[in-house]
């Protein structure tokens, strides 16, 4: 995998999580800014998906390909789902859902790294 991309995703996801957690602490429902922060994380994850798939198709994939692709596809679904479910809960708990979703992303990215390196 591309280390710089992994670091960028992790930092973006943690910042987005902190932002949404702050909004939850301040008792605010999800705002447009939070949607944008999740969008940034999602954009980076899509880049990761494209990069990983292109490396797999050029014969550079991990040994446990099924698990890797499973994580790869799952992680791309997390920010949109967190955004959707969080947005329609118009309380601080909507912001909490977004924060939790953003925290799941680095965990899955770490697992992706582990599977990639066998």
């Amino acid at each position: 995998m591309v280390d710089g991309l992994v670091i960028a995703i992790t930092i973006a996801a943690l910042l987005a999580a902190a932002f949404s957690a702050l909004m939850a602490v301040l008792d605010r429902p999800p705002q447009l800014g939070q949607l944008i922060s999740l969008g940034v994380v999602e954009a980076l994850l899509v880049v990761q998906l494209v990069v990983a798939l292109s490396r797999i198709f050029t014969g550079d994939g991990p040994q446990d390909l099924a698990t890797f692709v499973g994580y790869l596809l799952t992680v791309v679904l997390i920010p949109p789902l967190a955004a959707l479910l969080g947005w329609f809960e118009r309380t601080r708990w909507g912001s909490t859902i977004m924060a939790v979703g953003c925290l799941v992303v680095p965990v899955l990215v770490v697992r992706l790294q582990q599977v990639w390196h066998g």
Binding site: A82, L85, E89, T91, W93, T96, I97, V100, G101
Partner: peptide, 11 residues
């Protein structure tokens, strides 16, 4: 079914 319950449901 609302608030924190929804967060828990998502997790």
């Amino acid at each position: 079914g609302s608030g924190p319950g929804r967060v828990l449901a998502v997790v």
